[in-house]
């Protein structure tokens, strides 16, 4: 039962990610991405990390994917259709992809991943909201704040760049 659920969710996340790459229509690609996020959120739920799962949906599917859709809707229709979907230099990204795949395969080999464990909850104690809060705001407060400031800088940088473009 758990294994079946796991494979359905895995199919959703991987298939969704593939759909983003393959679909020609950018709006459909965004929808595939939402499906992929949904699958990942399901995997979080299977790991008893419901808080992460819900944040995954709220932040990525509910906010970021909507933002992407919004940006595509505000852009000119012909601009979107004229965009190139593939990089003219495919070799380097392909190499990076192969390296990542090899890395994942190596990890899978090293840790002897057993497929009969698929879908079983192997976390120690489950995770909950309070524990995440304690780890984030007690042990890793400084890195957390630094991340927040980096994101703010990126935001302001984007505003500055687009303002310059208009002038």
């Amino acid at each position: 039962m758990e294994a079946i659920m796991f494979f359905i969710l895995a199919l959703m996340s991987v298939g969704g990610a593939l759909g983003v790459l393959i679909s020609k229509n950018p709006y459909r690609a965004a929808m595939w991405m939402v499906l992929s996020f949904f699958g990942i959120a399901g995997l979080f739920v299977m790991l008893h990390a419901q808080f992460n799962a819900m944040l995954q949906i709220i932040v990525y599917a509910g906010a970021i994917a909507v933002m992407i859709m919004l940006v595509m809707m505000v852009m000119d229709r012909r601009t979107i259709e004229g965009l190139k979907r593939f990089n003219p230099q495919p070799i380097w990204p392909a190499l990076i992809g192969v390296a990542l795949l090899a890395d994942l395969g190596f990890i899978a080999y090293k840790f002897k991943i057993d497929l009969s464990n698929a879908g079983k909850n192997l976390t120690l104690n489950g995770s909950n909201t309070q524990m995440i809060g304690e780890v984030l705001f007690k042990h890793y407060l400084l890195p957390f704040e630094v991340t927040a400031i980096i994101l703010l800088v990126a935001l302001i940088g984007a505003v500055v760049l687009t303002k310059k473009d208009i002038n």
Partner: peptide, 11 residues
Amino acid sequence: LYILAMLGLAS
């Protein structure tokens, strides 16, 4: 959080 997530997806 679950309700908020579903509200977000409804759009």
